[in-house]
Design a protein around this nucleic acid. Structure first.
Lengths: 198, 198
DNA sequence: TATTTTCGTTAATGGTCATTACACAACCGC
DNA sequence: GCGGTTGTGTAATGACCATTAACGAAAATA
């Protein structure tokens, strides 16, 4: 809850909606990548000028972290798939298929905003993305541990790598059926593996 | 054979070796990415000044394509694994393991130079990387077709996505055992799948 | 209405970038 | 030696970038 819109400060009220601004920025960052989106492009998309932008968000990097928060809260909610009761491998397969679907629904904004920014070396915005990606990976491992799956870390790494691959393939322009077929193949592999281990 | 070093042109001879320059540039591009390597950094690493660079290579993008050619010719030679006689799925598994190994051998230069540059939208250097990646993918599909594997395209896409994921995970900093375990898991999945289809 | 507080706009600041005139230096055939 | 040809170094060019003073405008409280 870093953005608070329901207060009533004393001076002149802001002339634009914070939420809509973050959403517009999220779309731009997702389509072109952090480094290829200039502050001028952001302010033009929002409909304001640079000083308003800096007064509201502090910096381009801070604004980007805001868009990361919005993205991880709205797109691909992991908890929808990692419900404690479900069959573990089937749940992971559904998650992969959902990712393949989400990564290709918008012709712009392909792939995963978080994963595609989790490689930038030591920039603070890259670290922020890397941290969210790591948290989600831990959640998958914890889910597998709770389901008493052997080698939970290994399976979690396999799923994480597959999602990285799906995101990268989506950014390369693969269409939705193609990506869904890959997700299906990986999902079958998970079931096949769990069958062998029993 | 775009670079010819054994001629004897008329004017003043070049004061540096083209091959060494391309190799130095390949290392820089691999470590930091095309956009994060300035011409100043390139010329300093080579030991020359910008005019010499432009006289020899024409532009930063053209020089990058040269490094791509060198990379695809030296690292990960596909034909070593896609030999017509071998067991197809085992060969693909070996290829994945070799990729996991190659992507993590140098602490700098993680991942695949080609795959990591095959996402940039419509820049000419991104298109060049995308084209090489596509050619290699076609070679895998052809290999599977020749081995009379059902759904060769689907399997080739799965392998390509896995390599994309391995490259991205390597860039995120995963260590070699972790990446090799993922490659093993994917390799087992390929064998498991082919066993089911019979 | 007077005061306060915050907003928005214009226009700059300092930085980095890829690329290139220009002048000089080194090699060829003669 | 000499003219033609080509590489190299110094120093600039123009473009774009993130960020910020300075100032006028608008709204809320009193």
């Amino acid at each position: 809850m870093t953005i608070n819109e329901n207060k009533r400060p004393r001076g002149r009220p802001r002339g634009f909606a914070l939420g809509a601004a973050v959403e517009a920025g999220q779309h731009l960052f997702h389509e072109h990548g952090y480094e290829n989106v200039s502050v001028a492009a952001l302010t033009e998309a929002i409909g304001i000028t640079p000083p308003s932008f800096y007064a509201a968000f502090g910096s381009k990097a801070a604004f980007f972290k805001e868009t990361l928060r919005l993205y991880s809260a709205t797109v691909v909610p992991l908890d929808r798939f990692l419900t404690p009761g479900a069959a573990p491998m089937a749940a992971l397969g559904d998650m992969l298929r959902a990712a393949a679907h989400a990564y290709t629904t918008s012709p712009q904004r392909r792939g995963c905003l978080i994963l595609e920014h989790a490689k930038a070396g030591t920039t603070d915005w890259g670290i922020a993305a890397k941290q969210i990606a790591g948290e989600n990976r831990s959640r998958v491992a914890q889910f597998l541990d709770d389901a008493e799956i052997k080698a939970s870390g290994r399976v979690a790494d396999y799923v994480a790598t597959t999602m990285l691959g799906l995101s990268a393939a989506a950014r390369e322009g693969w269409d939705q059926p193609r990506l869904l077929a890959v997700a299906d193949t990986a999902a079958e592999a998970l079931l096949c593996r769990s069958a062998l281990e029993e």
